[in-house]
Design a protein around this nucleic acid. Structure first.
Length: 757
DNA sequence: CCGATTTCCGCACAG
DNA sequence: CGGAAATCGG
């Protein structure tokens, strides 16, 4: 059972709000998952049927967490409730409504980005496009972007202007054609085509509108246009749409997320109720204040001010490293000391970086120091070569038209069938317009094949035929995979090899087998009983298994409970929290990334990322800057990240209080922030300003008109207290706390009056 | 056709 | 620098 008393007043309002649109602006650590799950429980308690509720998240992890937490609140009352990702919801709808998409059957397969890539390469070759001018990756990105904007191949062609766009429009068309031949959809299609079916078939849409009378969307700031439209369509009738998000945490612009969706919610739904969850339960005041003062430099954002009842905590610690080696040494050393001095377990620590390339040095250091660590999101289980191979067998068996996966396995293991034979097979398949797996049964009629190749293809065809019988006899997935492995001899070369890599592959295969076994067992229990099964219906058999795999992409991570420091990008840290957080590489050109210099708006996204990173921490934040850094095989000299300058000085300390006080721990001198080295790595003298060493004061006579903690008055913002002083003379920038609202003002222009304390 | 060698290229990323 | 793809030679 759930208790409303466990929630703060605003959270309660969010939970009990019943009819009509609701926008919940949920700051970092404000208990939004709690609100969402309680809201689901409350709706059900108020008599809403669970199957009338649709809760959408972005990641499987979030969906699973929400399912579990909702499950403990409502128990078996939750049967029929949908708590899923956008993609998984769309797949379920599409399996049902695929009849509205000519050319597709319900066995359709989902192509991942790798599969997508190989289809694109074929298309580019077919159209004789220079793959230097049109790299498959880039073209794929354009097509994906188009789909996220709901532009199908016709719309895209219409709105394409220059030559290059017209060429891409051709590729787009060819690409869709090839997907259809393979009875395949890519991830972006799942959303775009669901929307398209809804738009073209009002009676279909109507059924779903009637069913999902209450819709909840998590991380609404991350929705792209297609997802936004999908939600809008579904909610159009009952308008019981509750969206939760934080515009300050929108960091996925690069994959089509549009912050405007959340900013415009009140325009789309004028009757919307808006609630702000501003109490943070996670971080210390210092951390929160630092995060706020960084993000308040952004212009396009909803005003909000996070606060907390938590203690002030210690200042954020700032370390200037010589280079990336020194940086990693510092991090490792700090972790060791905090473990010794404060008895912290390894799981307390997270190291966050901007790009994956930064992880290696850290890894090497941790390894050397014997500190157990775990890299979050190394490449995905289902994307490993051997797993993809086995999956390719399964996919072709389930969908005989699947060309990409056919190509993948034709010569795996080695059957002496290379590009030449493959081309002939493909040509024949295209002419005959039949599924490729059926085409090769007629290998005798395929022209121009070498006798050896012909024989080999026929043998392969018969092998697949025999495996297909197993599928038809509803053999368990486990048994099927075992038969594939045995009959193809897939593991033989790995066993012979006996290298560490081949050993790892064999282990992965063994793990895959246990995944299939688990699936067989789970799916055969017809009723979802346990609470954690809310919203997951497993179809027994191969197709159900494949769907699960396509949508989940990551294997249940149960065995990763062992204590270890975690390393991850700031992006993947979103939604997580740690007692101690290290943020490394605070350098212009790294973080913020080099690209934010030119593209407008990008810097604001980087700043939000900084906000996300800082607010992951509960107790302590360590910030590192390296004066020089080896990256991508070249040495870079970067100046300090502007984000460091945006944190008020009184919240930063350069000497960690856990150090023995050799000298008095000093506050950072503001002058140390004013000098910058140009990001080209050359010193700035070439640009007119005199070369000088970092740390040397720029201005000799500092007029200290305003000092920390001075009380000041402003005719617009009222009374405030100075939280930070940065820069000198004309450039002095003050960070002022006006009743919880942090503002950064230029002292010279702000017309401030000094008040007596 | 296959393995070895060279060349190329580089943000963030779930589904 | 390191991984993936392209190219070369047997």
């Amino acid at each position: 059972m759930y208790r409303l008393e466990d929630l703060n007043p605003v959270q309660q309002l969010a939970v009990v709000h019943r009819e009509g649109p609701l926008l919940i602006l949920a700051g970092a650590g404000s208990g939004k998952t709690r609100v969402l799950t309680y809201r689901i429980a409350h709706l059900i308690a108020q008599g809403v049927e669970p199957w009338e509720i649709l809760a959408i998240t972005f990641t499987n992890k979030a969906a699973q967490e929400m399912r579990e937490r909702a499950g403990t609140l409502v128990g078996s009352e939750g049967r029929g409730l949908w708590v899923t990702t956008f993609h998984s919801a769309c797949v379920r709808i599409l399996r049902q409504e695929i009849g509205n998409l000519p050319g597709y059957t319900r066995d359709f397969v989902i192509y991942d980005s790798g599969d997508q890539q190989s289809v694109l390469k074929t298309c580019l070759k077919e159209l004789n496009l220079d793959d230097k001018k049109f790299p498959a990756r880039a073209v794929g990105a354009v097509i994906s972007e188009a789909k996220n904007k709901l532009l199908d191949q016709d719309n895209f062609e219409q709105q394409s202007g220059d030559y290059s766009q017209h060429q891409i429009a051709k590729v787009y068309r060819a690409y869709q054609k090839r997907l259809k031949v393979s009875n395949a959809l890519d991830f972006d299609d799942l959303i775009m085509l669901t929307v398209s079916i809804f738009r073209q078939n009002p009676e279909v849409l109507s059924r779903y509108q009637e069913r999902f009378r209450y819709i909840l969307v998590d991380e609404y700031q991350d929705t792209n246009h297609a997802q936004y439209s999908l939600v809008k369509l579904l909610a159009a009738r009952y308008r019981n749409l509750c969206v939760v998000g934080d515009d300050d945490q929108s960091v996925y612009g690069f994959r089509g997320a549009d912050v405007q969706n959340i900013l415009d919610f009140e325009r789309d739904y004028p009757e919307a109720k808006v609630l702000k969850l501003e109490q943070n339960y996670r971080s210390t005041q210092s951390i929160l204040e630092a995060a706020n003062s960084v993000v308040c430099n952004n212009t396009e954002r909803k005003e909000k001010s996070l606060w907390t009842k938590n203690p002030k905590g210690q200042p954020l610690i700032f370390y200037v490293a010589d280079d990336e080696q020194d940086e990693s040494r510092y991090v490792a050393e700090r972790i060791k000391r905090l473990r010794n001095l404060e008895g912290r377990p390894l799981n307390d620590f997270a190291i966050l970086y901007r790009t994956n390339a930064q992880s290696r040095v850290l890894e090497e250091r941790l390894m050397k120091e014997g500190i157990p660590y775990r890299i979050f999101s190394e490449h995905k289980f289902y994307e490993r070569l051997e797993i993809k191979d086995i999956l390719a067998y399964l996919r072709v068996l389930s969908n005989p038209a699947d060309i990409v996966n056919f190509v993948r396995i034709l010569n795996v293991p080695k059957r002496g069938l290379g590009g030449t034979s493959l081309a002939k097979v493909l040509e024949y398949t295209e002419e005959q317009k039949m599924p490729i797996l059926e085409a090769i049964l007629e290998a005798d009629y395929i022209p121009d094949l070498q006798p050896k190749a012909r024989k080999s293809i026929l043998a392969f065809a018969q092998l697949m035929q025999s495996l297909k019988e197993l599928v038809n006899n509803e053999t368990s997935v486990y048994k099927l995979v075992e038969e594939i492995l045995n009959r193809t001899g897939y593991r033989d070369p790995l066993i012979t090899d006996n290298t560490p890599e081949s050993q790892a592959r064999l282990e992965n295969i063994a793990e895959f087998l246990s995944v299939t076994d688990e699936y067989d067992k789970k799916a055969s229990q017809s009723k979802p009983v346990a609470a954690d099964e809310l919203g997951v219906e497993l179809t027994p058999g191969l197709s159900g298994f494949l769907e699960q795999v396509s949508l989940v992409a990551e294997i249940g991570q149960l065995d990763q409970q062992e204590a270890a420091v975690v390393l991850m990008t700031m992006h993947s840290a979103k939604g997580l929290e740690f007692p101690v957080v290290f943020i490394v590489g605070l350098e212009e050109g790294i973080f913020p990334s080099i690209r934010s210099d030119l593209e407008p708006g990008l810097i604001e996204e980087e700043r939000r990322l900084c906000y996300v990173a800082l607010t992951r921490a509960r107790e302590k934040v360590y910030l590192c800057h390296a004066g020089q850094r080896m990256l991508y095989g070249r040495r870079q000299y970067n100046s300090r990240s502007r984000f460091l300058e945006e944190i008020p000085y009184n919240l930063l300390e350069e000497i960690d209080p856990i150090d023995p006080p050799a000298r008095q721990p000093k506050k950072l001198k503001s002058t140390e922030f004013s000098s910058r080295v140009s990001s080209t790595g050359l010193n700035s003298s070439a640009f007119g300003s005199p070369a000088r060493k970092l740390g040397t004061p720029l201005v000799e006579n500092v007029q200290e008109e305003f000092r920390l903690n001075d009380k000041v008055g402003h005719d617009k913002f009222g009374q405030g207290i100075i939280m930070g002083v940065k820069g000198e003379g004309h450039q002095t920038v003050l960070t002022i706390n006006f009743q919880g609202q942090l503002k950064q003002l230029i002292a010279e222009y702000a017309k401030l009056t000094r008040l007596k304390a």
